[in-house]
Every structure is written in structure tokens, then in C-alpha cells.
Design a protein around this nucleic acid. Structure first.
Lengths: 248, 248
DNA sequence: AATTATATTGCAAAAACACGCAAAATCACG
DNA sequence: CGTGATTTTGCGTGTTTTTGCAATATAATT
């Protein structure tokens, strides 16, 4: 088995289970511990995973430690600032949840007039601070993990909406695989959100680039805007520039 | 289980409940007390929590003391404690919004199994901290004043629900006039909530007793429980004791 | 004051890790 | 094809990390 194959296998395992044990890999791949360690180290060097004692963890699985200090807040503010430019008076906007979206909302200009649909209670509360924004919270089962509403009822309601723009956070984005996610329900949800908006902007901190998870949400062509905290010319974005999407 | 995962788990517990017991973690994670203590110590070193005798506390809980800004918090906690007694395992409960309800939710026992419908995003977020509570957020227009969803869509959805108990806060209650309110939309909302629950409990701090506002929600007979922070025998409640409702 | 629950400390075994080395495989290039 | 360089891999050795246990100390409870 070639080294590259091993690396791919390891990454697949990680994206599947969010974690991997060195000892398991030794058995599965039938190589020595040293080889696995070297592999993991190389993948760390390529910024593809976190190494810990005993194995490795997925990068996308970044447990939201404390609520008070948002992880990578600076990057998220930078993203939010770019996203604000997409919002024009009178627009109908649909948003998902997550800390990045929340930072975006906080950066909206005070006087803005718009209609916002959202599946995130926290986003709704934040949006309510703007006098001229009409806020519609889409109701349904409430997910303890993602802190958004989901399930059949949400999808039904989404199907009745026609939005100018959809803003969503990312679990993972990959230049070939497109948008992917780990949970079935969230996957379905994102599909429904995409379907009801004319354009979609994906808000994505750079460390979630080039990662593919189990479930496919949509190909990269379905996305209108990719917003990261990086400079547009940044090398990491080159493979996305080749696609038909606007990078901000 | 990897150490990092354990740390993540502990932090999740802490951010969820603001505190953890060493003994609980021992059981949940199935490791020795020593290991948990070392984990907690390491998290202290990383400045992520406070360690105390018996467990640990969330940092944000002590620093950002926004709870204390709740008006008449002590009374509301007293009310919450009484309201908790009405909740039995397996119940379907519908709640409104407001700080009193929020305090009530925070006082629910950890293991409780129930289904909660709510029109308040903040209540939903708080309820989501309980593993065995299914939370359904009823969606619709979001009111900037009351921080709850309202409007036709909410009322339609409420009409499809059958709850064992409805918990609602109060604008005003009067022994003859019953429940009253100032805003038309909120009035309609409360009527709909009453209609879909077998019993209704009104959570009401004493200063809202004996007040009647413009719009009538329901006569006092439609209420099953009146919960205040006062002693049941208190003089102020005498005129309510004459009516057919349980005073807690 | 006595009893129980929780902490601390040092220690030892097991597991995981890092480093250098050498054999084997692969590559580079005349 | 051949020869030297490079890469890859596994092994041995010593080190570090992790974990549970026991003994002791401290705090909480009655």
C-alpha cells in the first residue's frame, strides 16, 4: 500500500469518526506504529488534522469551548464584515446558525431595512435589535448540538420561502466535493435552505477549507459566494478561483 | 477515549450546566477520580474553569454576571421552584417567554424526561441543556418587545398541539377581571396557548396581582394554578383563594 | 469530636512516543 | 543498465505521558 493511499485512508477515517486511534490504524493498515506516527505528523504538517496522545482528531470537529470567547473570533469578524456588503435594503435573507453568522449580524449597519428568516434562535434575538429588520424565526425541533431548528416542519416551511440570499456557515468545504456535513438532519436542512434562495453565500473560516465529510450537501457550483477571512489572492483559494463562484 | 476528548466533554458539561461534580464525571467517563482531578487541574491551568471542592464551575458563570440584572430575581427563583413541582416525567409542556419562565427552566432537575413546546428562543436554548427534554420551538414573526414568536403562523401551529400543561408569565392578573394584557397580538397568542393545554399555570410575581389591563385574555376560572413567590396563606392572595384555582 | 467525602502526593506499570540507525525499495541521471 | 542519492519502513532503545493505587491530608457534615 502506497503512502498516499494510507494518508487518504486515515483522512477518510477521521472525517468519518472525527477521531482515530494510532493503535487502530496499526491494525487496519498493517504497518508499524512508527509509520502511522510519521503519517500523522505529515498530515499535521499539511494542516489536515490535530494530533493528540493516542491518535488524532478532526480539524472540523472543533468543540466550541467556552461561549464567552468565540473561537477564532477575529477571523469571524473579518468574514462578517465582508458578508455585510452583500446585504442591500429591502432584501429577503435566510440565515443558518453558528458563531460566524452571529458575528455577521452584529456588524450590520443600524438603519438597514430587510426581512430575515432564520433557523437560529440566537440569531433571531440578535437581529431583533435592529428596528427596521423584520425577523421570522422558523420553528421546529430544536437541535441541542447545532442550536438550530431542524426536521420536517422546518423543511416544509423553508419550501414556502423565496429568499434573495442565503447565508450559511460551514462544516467543511472542498474544491471537488463541494459542501459536506456529518449529520443527516443538518444535511437535509442545508439542502432545503439552498433550494429556497436565489443565491447562497458560504461563510467559512480558512481551516475548514479542503475538507470533505461523509454527506454531500451540494456541489461547489451551487454556491454563489465563498467568504473567508483570507485575502482574495491567497494561495489556499486558488483551487476555488477556478470554479464558478465569487470569492470575497 | 482520548484525553482531549475527555477535556472536551468536561468543558461541554460545564458550559451547559455551569458546573460539574467530580463524582458525576467519574461515572460518565468511566475513569478514576484521580484522572478527573488531573483533567480538571489541566483545564484550570488553561484558564478554562474554576475548580472547587467537589467539582468545578464555569468561568463565564462567575465573570459575566448578567443573571443578576434580572429584575426581582429572588422572587422569580422562588416561583420557579414551585413551578418545577408541577412537571412530571413524560409530560408535554407548553411555555411562553419571559424571565420568570427562564428561571423556572434553570431549576428543572437534570434527569427529567419531557417534551417542551415554546414560543421563546431563549427558553428553547436553555431547555436544550437537558439531555432528555425534547424541545420544539414554535416559529413565526419574532417580537422585538417580548422576545417571543407571535402572529398567525404561531397560532395555527398552537392549534395543532395538545399539551398537558401550559406555563405562562403574566402582564397582569386580577381576581375579577382575570388575565389581561396590553397588546392585541400577545393577547391572541395567550388565548391560543390556553386553548391547547389541559391545564394552565400562571407564574406571577406579587406586584402584578390585582391589576387589570385593556384586553382580556381569559377569566380567572380558566387558570388551574397561580404561582407567586408569596406564602399560600398570604393576605394578598385571599381574594384568589375564593376562586376555583390552586394557589402555589 | 467523629465520620465521611474529597484532595494531594508519590509511586509504579503500561502505553505511547521520539530518535537514530540500517535494510529495502525507489528514484535520478549519465 | 548501473551507481549513487533519496525515500520509506521497521527495529531497538530510552524517554515521556497517562493512569490507577495507596497513604496521607484536608475539607465538609453531623
Amino acid at each position: 500500500m502506497l503512502k498516499k493511499e494510507r494518508h487518504d485512508f486515515i483522512m477518510r477515517q477521521i472525517n468519518l469518526h472525527n477521531r482515530v486511534l494510532t493503535s487502530d490504524l496499526v491494525q487496519l493498515l498493517n504497518v508499524s506504529e512508527d509509520t502511522i506516527r510519521r503519517d500523522l505528523q505529515e498530515l499535521v504538517d499539511e494542516n489536515l488534522l490535530y494530533k493528540v496522545h493516542g491518535g488524532a482528531l478532526s480539524k472540523s470537529y472543533h468543540s466550541s469551548f467556552d461561549d464567552s470567547t468565540v473561537y477564532a473570533r477575529d477571523s469571524k469578524i473579518a468574514i462578517g464584515r465582508k458578508a455585510v456588503q452583500l446585504i442591500k435594503d429591502g432584501m429577503v435573507v435566510l440565515t443558518g446558525g453558528g458563531t460566524t453568522i452571529l458575528e455577521f449580524v452584529k456588524l450590520l449597519p443600524q438603519g438597514i431595512t430587510a426581512t430575515f428568516f432564520t433557523i437560529s434562535p440566537l440569531v433571531a434575538v440578535e437581529l431583533a435589535k435592529y428596528n427596521n429588520i423584520e425577523v421570522i424565526l422558523i420553528g421546529g425541533l430544536f437541535s441541542k448540538n447545532s442550536q438550530v431548528t431542524y426536521g420536517g416542519q422546518v423543511i416544509t416551511q423553508l419550501s414556502e420561502i423565496k429568499a434573495d440570499l442565503c447565508l450559511m456557515g460551514t462544516s467543511a468545504i472542498h474544491h471537488d466535493e463541494g459542501l459536506t456535513d456529518t449529520y443527516w438532519e443538518i444535511n437535509q436542512l442545508k439542502k432545503a435552505m439552498l433550494a429556497c434562495a436565489k443565491r447562497t453565500a458560504v461563510l467559512c473560516i480558512s481551516e475548514k477549507l479542503d475538507i470533505a465529510l461523509r454527506l454531500r450537501v451540494c456541489p461547489i457550483e451551487s454556491i454563489s459566494y465563498l467568504i473567508t477571512e483570507l485575502d482574495i489572492e491567497n494561495e489556499s483559494l486558488s483551487r476555488y478561483r477556478e470554479k464558478e463562484l465569487n470569492i470575497l
